[in-house]
Design a protein around this nucleic acid. Structure first.
Lengths: 248, 248
DNA sequence: CCTAACTCCGTACGCCTCACGGAATAAGAC
DNA sequence: GTCTTATTCCGTGAGGCGTACGGAGTTAGG
């Protein structure tokens, strides 16, 4: 039962190399798997993964709900296909220059992709689907640090570290923009609502460091934080740390 | 309307210092806000945040669904209260020793909390609720690096970096354990299903680095990865990088 | 030409949040 | 002591969701 779905999804993921095995008997399909995946990506781009639904995908394609299930086994499998699809939509940059530049390129690629499709960060699958574009990208990520002097084991850990950091930073960045644009409340307005209660409730001497650091951050950039700057700061520290590991 | 909910939730968050302002007129409440929050945490601990529902919280308390809404404004506000509650359930460790040890303590605290309540990583609020326990912890996190030589601006960035990294690592760790225990499929079984398709589809020479690194990892720990080890590896690199920043 | 496979889809079940309004309850007002 | 009014608890229903099941129409192979 479930095993069958796994096989089916894998052959869908690798449909470019395997070919599309459509039974020739009945009526022709009105759309294609690619169109279903594309429509899914559009819905998710516009409304996020929680508002993403099979019904909306069907509507966008001019089909009725249950027809979608003749293309993909179910919702979570469709999301898996969407993830691999967007991993392949931008060509992987040429890698060159110093180790620092190459690692930065890997992190930046992940950061950009998350910003292009914020719903990627909402996907939680216990086990990732291994598709062609994901595989290509992992190979590319490894090639960025190949020959730098890491052991094979370290290479995987380095990629995990860099890519995970980029994703985490993107998460903060996206949350920050969504806070402003989706709720329609600016940082200033938000503080106006919270401040009265918080001032009454936080004793003046209980949070000295938070107060000091908070006002410093507030002065520098008129917001609670600057995600892009935090990203560059953290990435530079991580690369410094990696270079030191190689020096030993 | 919405502004009212914000005020109400803030007074609920700070109920220990503000007191519980319960109108004295009608019938007494059968349970308390604390019990509602506790019940919510239990449900989320057992089933995760996607399966978490107001109905289950009500059932657990012997109330009917709609009664919960007399205690908290809605689902997302209840989750906000739960987040602050679990942030306060373990005492913050004393900070001492070297900078490395203090930063490690901060990261480890976050890592532990995420493992105790994996649903924390599923919470996505554009704007965080500022409750007492969250505030205390931020102050504690800052105190771990106070006096080390960072600027005020850097202090916030360092905490963001370390805490974010711990959360990201915990995410990987939890996903790994959930992969095994929830689906009931071991890593080996999973490969048995995937391998036949993947071998047929991945040309032998296309993924040389992935193959080399993958088998190295597979030999070292009989799994696709070792989250705890990746956590320690990454944290050490980050701290190395931070120390180098201070040396300059 | 018949049959078997295939696509599309209507219906239904069991979930979910939350708005609304009604009944029961208990404290304050008089 | 009675009345009013705030408050709690809850039933109902609207509007979402994923997907199991089965039926109708369509097409190619035998």
């Amino acid at each position: 039962m479930e095993n069958q779905d796994v096989d089916r999804t894998l052959t869908l993921l690798w449909r470019r190399t395997l070919g599309t095995p459509q039974g020739s008997r009945g009526p022709k399909q009105r759309v294609s798997v690619d169109e279903v995946i594309r429509a899914g990506i559009e819905v998710a781009d516009e409304e996020g993964l929680t508002a993403f639904s099979m019904r909306k995908v069907a509507d966008r394609l001019g089909l009725k709900l249950m027809s979608i299930y003749t293309y993909v086994p179910g919702r979570s499998e469709l999301v898996g296909l969407m993830v691999d699809e967007v991993a392949g939509e931008q060509q992987l940059p040429e890698l060159g220059g110093s180790l620092r530049e190459r690692i930065t390129a890997v992190a930046r690629q992940q950061w950009d992709e998350c910003h292009r499709h914020p719903w990627l960060l909402q996907v939680e699958e216990s086990r990732p689907w291994i598709g062609p574009n994901i595989s290509d990208r992992y190979e590319w990520q490894l090639s960025a640090i190949e020959g730098a002097g890491f052991t094979d084991l370290e290479m995987d850990q380095v990629v995990t570290l860099v890519v995970g950091f980029a994703a985490q930073s993107a998460r903060a960045s996206i949350a920050a923009s969504r806070a402003v644009e989706s709720s329609g409340i600016s940082d200033a307005q938000w503080w106006e609502v919270n401040a009265p209660v918080l001032e009454r409730v936080m004793p003046g001497d209980r949070y000295p460091l938070s107060g000091r650091v908070g006002t410093a951050a507030g002065l520098e950039y008129n917001a609670v934080g600057d995600p892009d700057r935090s990203f560059r700061f953290g990435l530079d520290r991580i690369i410094d740390g990696l270079e030191e590991l190689l020096d030993r």
